[in-house]
Amino acid sequence: MLEIERLSAAYGLAQVLFDLTLDVRAGEIAVLLGRNGAGKSTCLKTIIGLLRPMSGAIRFAGRRIDGLEPFQIARLGLGYVPEDRRIFSDLTVMQNLEVGRQAAHGRPSEWTPRRLFELFPNLGRMQHRRGARMSGGEQQMLTIARTLMGNPKAILLDEPSEGLAPLVAEQLAKTVLELKREGLSVLLCEQSLYFAQSVADRAFVIEGGHVRYAGTMQALAADVEVRDKYLSV
């Protein structure tokens, strides 16, 4: 579904990603684990086109997407949920969803506000509330719902559990699994091994912009050495 091959990227003159190679298969949840500053967020930003790669290739559904504008990539069916939520605080829940709305190319539209409110009942109860007046957990739900309005085939989720109360994070994990059941592929960034373990199929551990480990989530959970070295939980 999503293939990243020897991707390098830099902020200004400081290179952040080095020859990153990873892939997400159709219908699976892959997680990028690593410390703060390891390059996880940069990786997602580069995939969605907010940052131009220096070299390497990104393929989505068989098509090269590196070098495209973010809006073009989004329209191909790749959704992006940023780490700090970035909902439009001036707009209501419904209007936030409207911004995310894109026609599903060649497919029937899968997500409507009504269906999303089934998935996120909280949002359904506050359709006309402005984003500024929502709690952190509700905002996190809204960013995901907003991205789904674009009928993506895959989504990039940047540290969704960061800053959420443990109770809310548990709910979020359930939601992510539900998305998988809907057939979406997910590339997740996380620092929390706990959250990753509860949802992911495969894991990539990155450190200093390099992939240090790739394997199933189960194998990683058993690999004490890698966990201690790069994740130190």
Partner: peptide, 19 residues
């Protein structure tokens, strides 16, 4: 709606498919 969204955060609007 798109204008107001871009007013607040143009980068994010772009990542949601807004040209």
């Amino acid at each position: 709606t798109l204008v107001r969204a871009a007013t607040e955060d143009r980068e994010m609007a772009g990542a949601l498919g807004v040209n």
